[in-house]
Nucleic acid binder design. Sequence first.
DNA 1: CGAACCATTGATTCGCGTCAAACCCGGTGG
DNA 2: CCACCGGGTTTGACGCGAATCAATGGTTCG
Lengths: 244, 244
Amino acid sequence: MADETILATFFRKLEVRDVVTAAEKVALIACASDMVSVPAGGDLVREGDRPDTSMLVLDGFSSRYRDAPDGSRQITAIHVPGDFVDLHSLLLREMDHSVGALSACSVMRFPHARLRSLTETHPHLTRLLWLMTLIDASIHREWLSAAARTAPEQIAHLICELYVRLGITGLIAPDQSFTLPLTQTALGEALGLSAVHVNRSLQQLRSEDLFTWQNQTVRILDWESLKRRASFDDRYLHLVREPR
Amino acid sequence: MADETILATFFRKLEVRDVVTAAEKVALIACASDMVSVPAGGDLVREGDRPDTSMLVLDGFSSRYRDAPDGSRQITAIHVPGDFVDLHSLLLREMDHSVGALSACSVMRFPHARLRSLTETHPHLTRLLWLMTLIDASIHREWLSAAARTAPEQIAHLICELYVRLGITGLIAPDQSFTLPLTQTALGEALGLSAVHVNRSLQQLRSEDLFTWQNQTVRILDWESLKRRASFDDRYLHLVREPR
DNA sequence: CGAACCATTGATTCGCGTCAAACCCGGTGG
DNA sequence: CCACCGGGTTTGACGCGAATCAATGGTTCG
């Protein structure tokens, strides 16, 4: 159980896409069970697990990843506060990838049994949860097409995406900055680039004065130019409020 | 409206993952409206559209793609008979990519209004439809991590995936062959490779006698070796029958 | 103070893109 | 019937983007 404020970031994420009634919020809150804290570097779920709860990140950054036998790691998604990291395990059952905490995370757990009965009684909420997973898939597609671009463009694109996604839940500071607890190595794992090349591409971007990145803080200097540099178009995030 | 046999491939796809009752099949069939034929090269939906129906491919291959301003095309998914190509438009509303027919396709249309009321009355079916979109997302993640591998491995991996997916609906011939109406150019667009490099990688693979590919027909010669070559593990397709 | 991690730099190698031309084939029209 | 055509495949030559290997600072922390 949790009071409403604690799921505020999640509700904001939903409300960007549709109207959520007070009763629906109550029903969602009733689905929550307990909170868990995971230290940076820890795993929230591991590939092969068959979790009986889904987890919503309240605070902190996490990543979905898979480790290849040769030791390399591929990050397929980055999650920000307000994201369900493994809602899909409700139906997929077995995790086909792991979720790791990039920074210390606090996480709200939602037992599958409750979510499942929610799908029996609240069709509209069910559609909204479904929608969240569809947006995840849309982001995957965007990453797939971004992979064809050059390294600096890819990096710029990811910065743009996180800037917009964090903006939804009010996590962008007034000076256009936000926390990004990613190492250059992790960034490379997300984009399919080597850490060395990420470093050089960042130097390239730095010289273009589009943003700064120091102490895990990114600050956007020129949003319009950055968007252009990244060919960023936020339509794939489906930020339209309409009945779903 | 349609009789049951016409949705057989789709039902088989569902039944690999869960039990589907006769009543549920009837309900699904009742959602179908009409059939459409699209010639090879035509589009089923276009980016920016706001369709009021979702389409299930009964016959033929199609691809989800997006064209970049520079003229290049990125294919983010390949659909085989039995796949819903734009079920996500039910909730996402605006298409953020197009779907094109790789070969002549016949398609069953499902008006959103009917699917939506299905979500109001049939929670279990709703979860199954949701599941199908989750599997799509899982495939996206697999493609994302496959992008890090070399070109021949990527090609081999895609062949493996299609072989398994087509096998689900009984579309693999007794001699382990199947139709693959993809040009080398399209294959490159799917994997983020140039047509030239696809060609050379195919020559490489040909010399390894893992499969043949002639006249749009792929024939698997050595499945185990091919799987190994591609580091293919079908877990991401979630071929487990259990209550969802 | 070393251990560990991260950022940075240099040197080298290689996969893959790009450009360009040739080839193969089924289809079309004179 | 054959010249012509266009889409797809194949080859060759060349160059660049990015991986790899290796080493050096800078920081944090037990």
